[in-house]
Design a protein around this nucleic acid. Sequence first.
DNA 1: CTGCGGTCCTGAAGGC
DNA 2: TGCCTTCAGGACCGCA
Length: 278
Amino acid sequence: MPELPEVETIRRALIKNILHKKIKDVEIFSPKQFHGDITRVGGAKITGLRRKGKVLYLELANGLYLNFHLKMSGELLFGKKRNVTLKEYLPRTGTKSLPNKHTRIILNFDDGSALFFNDLRLFGWIKLTNKPAVPGGVDVLSKEFTAPYLLTVGRSTTRPIKILLMDQEKIAGIGNIYANDSLWEAKINPLRKAKTLTEVEINNLYKAIKKIIAEAIKYKGSSAQDEMYVMPDGQKGKYQNHFRVYHRTGKPCFRDKKIIVAIRMSGRGTFYCPTCQI
DNA sequence: CTGCGGTCCTGAAGGC
DNA sequence: TGCCTTCAGGACCGCA
């Protein structure tokens, strides 16, 4: 599922492709996934491409914002539109021919190129708004995200630390993969109540988050088996080859060789080493 | 405030 | 082989 590293990778790739281009028109095949006045998109020039948390948004010259949330299975692919008519004959996935079976919305640019919003599970969305449709939490890559900030939000709740890390209204950008791996890196059990973490543990966790997120960006995100994420050119990320605990149930911990266990927290898979994460 | 369960969806995987 | 059930999950919502 695209989290901060994946969305940031997409942003950096797309900025080269679509900045300063003019949107010719929008094709919507999945009406539930587009929110806003579509008549105000055509003709708009893209003046910026930004991100907060997991939300990517285009700044348009008409003062509006076109926001994207990929949720679990969204993809943003850049390419040239192929001449296809029958949906049944579309390939299931891939960039060799676009659109494909999972294409929900297409932004056509006036130079003949296009941006394809693909989404198998239909949970993602595109919104046209007056101001960026972004979460309220502090973005992990922003200068406001500091160890003292993490200490403040940690002290403010009795919720488990893993749930706090994934709360987009407190910290924006961390999802299930990087919450699990950051907690392993910091040797902290995901079930620990946030309030009970010491200042030393918070500092370690802060450093762990910055390290894991930077490494994930370096490897251009995670494209694990059931993760749909790919870059705008269709290439996969490589952080899945560096998972600490995520999807490593039953395998030995890289620190103490004990077996990684899986539990569920708030309906989400949670992976940790029961001996070295305390 | 907190947790819990349901909801949105498709398709892979597992059971028989 | 094939049908049926289960499961995965980010954000949101109603409820206790």
